[in-house]
């Protein structure tokens, strides 16, 4: 199924929750802030959010450089 990540289409396995999706990208759960359909999903609720077709995901990764 297809979701939109930062405005771009991306394929995900049906049934994938947000925590799994983040881990699948090799990202540490503490380094990203994520909105699904314009609502921030706190870190402790990511396992309960199962991605749905057409979900609009906005993800930002913390930047430490300067």
């Amino acid at each position: 199924m297809e979701i939109l990540v930062n405005g771009r289409a991306e394929q995900v396995e049906p049934g994938t929750n947000l925590a799994q999706w983040i881990a699948g990208k090799g990202l540490h759960p503490q380094q990203v802030a994520i909105e699904v359909n314009q609502a921030l999903v706190p870190r402790d609720q990511r396992e309960q959010v199962v991605l749905q077709p057409g979900d609009r995901v906005e993800m930002v990764s913390l930047v430490g450089g300067g």
Partner: peptide, 20 residues
């Protein structure tokens, strides 16, 4: 509010490793 805890050391890329 966005990033409650900093990720563990070594998680993030830096300008010394990834460039800028």
């Amino acid at each position: 509010c966005l990033f409650p805890e900093p990720p563990p050391p070594g998680t993030l890329e830096t300008c010394d490793t990834s460039g800028v």
